[in-house]
Simulated scan of single mutants.
Amino acid sequence: MANGFIDLFDKVPAIRLREPLAETLGAFRDGGTVLDYSFTDAVKMAGHACPTVSAAFLVCRLALEKLYGDTVPVRGEIGVTVYGEPGEGVYGVMAQVMSFITGAAPATGFKGLGTRFKRKDLLIFKPEKIDPEAMCFEFRRLDTGRAVLVRYYPGRVPFPEDKARQLGHLMQPVIWEAATEEERKQFHKLWMEKVEDMLLHNREIDDWLKIEIKEAIK
Rank of each mutant, 00 (worst) to 15 (best):
Val90Leu: 12
Gly103Tyr: 05
Glu77Ser: 14
Gly69Trp: 01
Ala14Tyr: 03
Glu128Thr: 14
Ala95Gln: 09
Tyr91Glu: 06
Ile78Lys: 09
Phe39Lys: 02
Ala42Val: 12
Asp36Met: 00
Glu85Lys: 15
Gly155Lys: 11
Leu35Lys: 09
Phe110Asp: 02
Arg18Thr: 05
Thr40Leu: 04
Val34Pro: 00
Tyr153Pro: 02
Arg156Ala: 15
Arg116Trp: 04
Thr40Tyr: 00
Asp143Leu: 14
Arg116Ala: 14
Gly79Glu: 14
Lys118Trp: 02
Gly103His: 07
Tyr153Trp: 07
Lys44Val: 05
Val59Pro: 00
Cys50Thr: 12
Pro158Thr: 10
Ala56Asp: 03
Asp36Pro: 00
Val74Phe: 06
Thr115Phe: 13
Asp70Leu: 13
Leu67Asn: 10
Glu65Tyr: 00
Thr115Met: 13
Gly103Ala: 09
Phe159Trp: 06
Phe159Val: 04
Leu35Gln: 10
Phe57Lys: 07
Gly145Val: 04
Phe137Met: 13
Cys50Tyr: 05
Ala22Leu: 12
Glu88Phe: 04
Gly32His: 11
Gly114Ser: 11
Asp121Ser: 13
Ala105Leu: 05
Arg116Ser: 14
Phe137Ser: 13
Val93Gly: 10
Leu67Glu: 07
Gly76Tyr: 04
Val34Asn: 03
Val72Phe: 04
Pro51Arg: 09
Leu142Ala: 12
Gly26Ser: 02
Leu67Ile: 08
Phe110His: 04
Leu113Pro: 01
His48Cys: 12
Ala134Ile: 06
Ala95Thr: 06
Val59Tyr: 01
Val43Met: 06
Tyr83Phe: 15
Leu17Asp: 00
